[in-house]
């Protein structure tokens, strides 16, 4: 356990120095999401003003709530995407030759990949804070059953996100091409997870694929808890699903790490780039 904690501390320090300590992170974590959010809001605005739109989606009757709905999506998406980004940085360990060194140490492999994702999230906690303050200032948008739901919502975002990040990192054991992460998980991810549209607007088959991505359900919980005043009882089904999905992702991670390491030992691929 102490060894694992040291891995977490070291990984956190490394990421702070390499990525999140830099002032440039304000662009990717705050400026871009805010501008993209405004673009999305204005893009769907004409449709929500159509006659009868409020019958199909009651939320659009109040522009403030529509904005809050999209903002919650942007927040959760930025959170998850920061994990894609740290997985992408993890692939540089291979380029710079330190991936092999990491696998020569006795450090737990699982601790390594978990630390990679969770330190990204801890360092992005300020983003969650900014959102909370913005939502609280825009009165009438934040609608909590009780204050504890804020912590519950944060947890429903954090735990699946860490499992997702660990899973992405374990995938990189097999591939030297990390560009696919960016191409495949940037735009398609917001589309299928209901980041910019309510899930009912998506065709059934897209919703079905979307369920495999924890962001989809995390977002349902986040919006339910923060904007619709739902409590733990109302969201029990989603919690159970998220817990199951996280467990499956972590199980897959453990499996992929083991198979990947054995594969790498046989082929010597960890030092290839």
């Amino acid at each position: 356990m102490r060894a694992a904690l040291r891995v977490f501390a070291a990984e956190g320090l490394k990421q702070h120095r390499r990525i999140f300590g830099s002032k440039l992170v304000v662009f990717s974590m705050l400026l871009w999401p805010v501008l993209t959010l405004a673009t999305t809001y204005y893009t769907v605005l004409p449709v929500t003003e159509a006659p009868g739109a409020a019958d199909r989606w009651p939320l659009v009757a109040q522009p403030g709530r529509l904005l809050a709905f999209l903002a919650a999506g942007a927040l959760a998406y930025t959170f998850f995407f920061s994990l894609v980004q740290s997985a992408w940085h993890f692939s540089w360990e291979r380029v710079s030759g330190t991936l092999e060194a990491m696998f020569l140490t006795p450090a737990s492999r699982m601790a390594l990949v978990l630390a990679n994702g969770s330190s990204a999230l801890v360092q992005n906690a300020w983003l969650f804070g900014c959102f909370g303050i913005a939502a609280a200032v825009a009165t009438g948008t934040l609608h909590l059953a009780h204050p504890g739901m804020l912590a519950v919502a944060a947890l429903a975002l954090l735990v699946p996100a860490v499992a997702w990040g660990a899973f992405l990192n374990s995938l990189l054991m097999f591939s030297r091409d990390s560009a696919f992460l960016y191409t495949l998980l940037d735009d398609p991810l917001w589309f299928i997870a209901g980041v910019r549209l309510p899930l009912f607007a998506l065709p059934v088959w897209i919703t079905a694929i979307g369920l495999a991505f924890p962001l989809t359900t995390s977002l349902v919980v986040l919006r339910g808890a923060l904007l619709d005043g739902k409590d733990v009882g109302d969201l029990a089904g989603q919690f159970a699903f998220l817990a199951g999905l996280s467990a499956v992702l972590l199980g897959l991670t453990a499996l992929l790490l083991r198979v990947g390491e054995r594969h790498a030992q046989r082929t010597g691929s960890l030092q290839l780039f």
């Binding site: 893009t43 769907v44 605005l45 004409p46 449709v47 929500t48 003003e49 159509a50 006659p51 009868g52 739109a53 199909r56 989606w57 659009v60 191409t183 735009d187 398609p188 917001w190 589309f191 910019r196 549209l197 309510p198 009912f200 607007a201 998506l202 065709p203």
Partner: peptide, 24 residues
């Protein structure tokens, strides 16, 4: 992907939320 998803988003929103119409 970027182009197709932008059109896709507008298409779904137009039909599912706007009911095939945009506001005046």
């Amino acid at each position: 992907a970027t182009g197709i998803l932008t059109v896709g988003l507008a298409y779904l929103a137009f039909h599912a939320i706007g009911g095939g119409r945009a506001g005046g």
